[in-house]
Amino acid sequence: MSLSLKPLDQQVILITGASSGIGLATAKAAAAAGAKVVLAARTREALAAAIDQIKYAGGEGIFVVADVSRREDLEALARRAIDEYGRIDTWVNNAGVGIWGRLDEVSDVDKRQLFETNFWGTVYGSEIAVSHLRRTGGALINVGSVASDAALPLQGIYSASKHAVQGYTNALRMELAADKAPVSVTLIKPASIGTPMPQHVKNYTDREARFPPPIYKPEEVAAAILRAATHPTRQLFVGSAGRTLSALSRQTPRLMDWVGANLLLPGQVGKAPATPTDNLAQGRAEAQLYGDHQGSMIRPSAYTRAATNPAISLGAAGAVAAVGAGLFLWGRRDRARIETSSEEEVQAHPS
């Protein structure tokens, strides 16, 4: 069977971590495009609310309470999707948790728990998805992070998990290609996204987590995911800042060490007190796309629009991301330039 991905309105799309943020944005966008959606997360009330929102807007979908760190939960999720709709066309491994804290402060228990969700949840989901997609064809989409390429202080164990997700995803893609399996494997790499994650992370500091700007809309990640669901794609960055950080980590690692120690480490805690609860070991979601980002603007990404729009030159978008590197690095001195420069240049110079 050759690889051929269906239009969205002919697809059944399964999404983990779908009770808020990126997963919910993807579910809403997919359903609005005519796909049947299967939502999974740990929080029943949030999933029910999410499906209500989708159905109210005219979409079709179901939800299943599942913990991705349990293979048996994901096997039951796949069976439920097939029982309801007869197949799975796209599987999106999006579920993830975060920890804000220095590596020498985070407990071994919490480090292992994060890996259970972020890494093992992706492994289990990928293996179960591929067992179905080998027969019918389709797309496997894993949500990594800019932290798949660039380590982030205070997010050290999160960064390690996303590095692991990238290594696993790339190796799986090679093995499926060797088998000529009709499965597209994509890794999505978002930069800072305006989800409720700052309120959900396990926080070892006394102040609320803060993402480095610029901060992009969750809908931008959803657009990248749905592009990969219909067009075989190896990887997609979401936000020019993510591509910039990735490039700098490869090309100037010592400079990135300095940036991490002097800019990113102090810049990732805000002024608000830390949220007292978290979703590390159990579900905590509210069926909301956005979180509180302490006054930071949550903006669209012209770079991502270019990357997901075949009418716009990816070469031009990549050049803009490279030019934006210096603006990002010196962002503490002039934050307004961080949040506008790369995006405005893509808009001003489309090709």
Rank of each mutant, 00 (worst) to 15 (best):
K202E: 04
I215F: 02
A224I: 15
P232E: 02
L255R: 06
V221A: 04
L187P: 01
P218M: 03
W258K: 14
E219Y: 08
I188Q: 10
T186D: 12
T230Q: 14
T195I: 01
S184P: 09
N203Y: 03
P182Q: 07
V269I: 14
L226I: 10
L263H: 03
M197L: 12
M197S: 07
N203Q: 11
K202N: 07
G270S: 15
S192V: 00
L265P: 02
T230I: 12
P182H: 03
P212I: 10
V221R: 05
Q251D: 11
E220G: 04
L263E: 06
P196A: 06
Q199L: 11
V201Y: 05
I188Y: 09
F211K: 01
V221F: 02
P196N: 06
E220A: 05
A222N: 08
V201F: 15
Y204I: 08
Y216Q: 09
A241R: 10
E219R: 13
A247F: 10
P218S: 10
L236H: 01
L248N: 04
P190G: 06
I215C: 05
A224M: 07
I188S: 04
I215R: 01
G242A: 08
R210S: 10
L255D: 01
A223C: 02
M197G: 01
A191F: 02
Q235I: 00
P273C: 08
G239H: 06
S246P: 06
P266G: 03
L248R: 08
G242C: 15
G242K: 07
Q268L: 09
L236N: 00
G260C: 05
P196S: 06
V259A: 08
Y216R: 12
H231Q: 14
R243Q: 10
P182E: 14
G260A: 12
Q268I: 11
Y204W: 03
A223H: 11
A228G: 09
S246D: 13
P273D: 15
T205N: 03
L245P: 06
V201C: 10
V185E: 14
T205P: 01
A222Y: 04
R227K: 12
G239N: 01
P196I: 15
S249G: 11
L264M: 09
L248M: 15
A222G: 04
G260V: 10
Q199C: 07
P213A: 11
F237Q: 05
Y204N: 01
S240P: 02
G194Y: 13
G242W: 03
E208C: 03
A223M: 05
A229C: 03
L236G: 00
V183E: 13
S249L: 12
P182A: 15
R207H: 13
R210K: 09
P182I: 03
L255P: 03
D206F: 13
V221I: 06
A272P: 14
G242E: 07
P232K: 07
H231F: 09
T230L: 08
I215Y: 04
L264N: 00
R210P: 09
L264F: 11
L264R: 02
L226C: 13
H231R: 10
Y216P: 14
M256N: 02
P218K: 13
T252D: 02
Y204V: 11
A223E: 12
A191D: 07
L226W: 10
V183D: 15
I215H: 11
A191T: 05
V269W: 02
V259F: 14
L264C: 01
A272M: 12
M197H: 08
P196F: 03
